[in-house]
Structures are given as C-alpha cells and as structure tokens.
C-alpha cells in the first residue's frame, strides 16, 4: 500500500530528529551493561565453576545478545506517543481517513527501529568488538536463521503489547504507571536482568507460561543453542500464538476504546 510507505518515510524523517538522543541512549545504556559483566566476572573468579549451564564466556555472550535483541526490538517512544494521540484527540483524524491506526503505528515503529538500530550500530558494535573474545558463535546456521525469525516475532510481540497497554489511555488519565509496571515485569521475566535458566526449574517453568520470555529470552537461547529440535519448533509456535493473541487483543481493545472515545468526544 502506497500510503503506508509514505508513513514509513515520515517516520524516518521524524525519528532522525532524535538521532542524538538515540545515540546517547544507546551509549549510556552500555555503562550498566559493562558493570553487570564485571560483576559476573568477579562472581566467576570467586568460585571456578559454572553458573547453571553458563561458562563465563556464555554468560557474557548472553548479556551481549540481550543488548542486540533489545536494540532491534524494544519499543522506544511509541507507547507514549499513542497515549498522547488519544489524550490530545489526534486519533479523531484517523477515524475519518481511510488509514488504519494500528498499521500506521506499526509503520512508525518499524521506521523508528531502523533508525535506532543504525544509530546504535556504532556504540554497540564497538562494545561487542572489544569483548569479542567472550562472544560465542551461533549454534549453527539454522540456529542463526531461527534466531533472526524469533527476534522479528519478538519485536512484533513487543509492539502489540505496548500498543494494547497504551490504549488504556481511553479509560485512564495516566497510563505511564501501567506502562512502567509492565516494563518491570518484562525486564525481570523477559530475561533482561539475568538468564531465566539459572532460576530454580519450577520458577523457570512458571515464567515460560507467560508471554515475557518470548520477548527476549527465547531468541537469545536459540542463538546459544539451548533450545533445539522439537523444543525449538514448539517454542516458535508458542511465540507465534502469543503474537496472534496480542494482535487480536489490540484490535478488540481498540474497538472498545473507540466506542468509549466517541461517547466522550460527542
């Protein structure tokens, strides 16, 4: 559709304005990452054994891969913008024009992610290069391909979850508290803070019943070769199922929200 290409182009132009902010964000984000890596190095130095199934190199690779997947998939400003569009009444124009708001936001998300990734390439690339002695290779060509596919699904899942949360602005004055709470759960249960498979098995199994691991942990564990064979295909299936679920939820919430919105706007 030509009109959506147009949206992507607008998205490029709008986000390019923020390139310095993006660069600072990507650059500053590496400082706590470096601190975490030093912390784990100290832990490994103190005990000479594996943590879970991770060697020191495996553990550092894990955090580097988390950074890569996060750069490629994390929602930056989209949720705040969507909530602001609803609060300021900007969505009225989308109800009149033949443009689907969800597709419109998805185009903006993609263009924003492309700019963010390009800007982050330098700081993240240099960082990984400096730590290349610890970086393990992907578990195989198939693992790499599945990793990329799973990362794409993770990005879409991120977007639909954030989109649905931002739509709460139809009902609530302030959605930032909800967004930050969801972010905290995602951070912990998604595997940002530590790899989920160093948790006690029961806890890990419980987390796998939530969508959070599929936002980050799952693609990273494919790269590291921790899931393979039937488990890999099952995982991708579950990830796709969550994606469909949140897509439908986003559509449903939007329809409910619009009804509420028109009722208020008169």
């Amino acid at each position: 559709m030509r009109k959506y290409w147009h949206v992507i182009r607008i998205g490029f132009e709008n986000t390019l304005v923020y390139r310095v902010n993006f660069l600072l964000r990507a650059g500053f984000g590496l400082i706590p990452l470096l601190a975490t890596i030093y912390l784990w190095q100290t832990v490994y130095r103190g005990q000479n054994s594996l943590v879970g199934d991770y060697s020191l190199a495996g553990m550092i690779s894990y955090y580097l891969l988390v950074t890569v997947v996060d750069t490629l998939t994390a929602v930056n400003e989209d949720d705040w913008q969507i909530a602001a569009d609803i609060k300021d009444g900007n969505i009225s124009q989308f109800l009149l024009k033949p443009i689907d708001y969800l597709t419109y936001r998805l185009c903006l998300f993609f263009s924003g992610k492309i700019i963010f990734t390009v800007v982050s390439l330098a700081p993240v690339g240099i960082f990984i290069f400096c730590l290349r002695q610890y970086m393990v290779a992907p578990a195989g060509e198939w693992a790499l391909a599945c990793f990329l596919l799973s990362t794409l699904l993770a990005g879409l899942l991120q977007f639909f979850i954030s989109y649905t949360l931002a739509l709460m602005a139809f009902w609530l004055l302030e959605v930032s508290t909800i967004i930050f709470m969801a972010f905290a759960f995602e951070y912990l249960a998604g595997g940002h803070v530590f790899p989920l498979n160093i948790l006690p098995p029961a806890l890990e199994a419980a987390l796998n019943c939530t969508p959070f691991p599929y936002l980050l942990f799952f693609p990273v564990s494919i790269y590291l070769g921790q899931v393979r064979g039937a488990a890999l295909w099952r995982g991708l299936g579950v990830q796709a199922a969550w994606l469909v679920f949140f897509y439908l939820l986003a559509r449903l919430v939007w329809h409910r929200g619009i009804r509420k919105y028109s009722a208020v706007g008169g």
Partner: peptide, 23 residues
C-alpha cells in the same frame, strides 16, 4: 512502580547468590 523496581534489584541479587556465596 518504584517498589516493583526495587524488588527487581533485590531479585537480581537473590539470583546471583543462588549460585555463589560471595561477590
């Protein structure tokens, strides 16, 4: 929200000390 993030930091410490007894 702030309590959740605080709890998250404590969880991180808790998980590290599942695997080691000193940093």
């Amino acid at each position: 929200v702030e309590l959740l993030w605080f709890a998250l930091q404590l969880c991180f410490i808790g998980v590290i000390y599942l695997h080691t007894d000193h940093i």
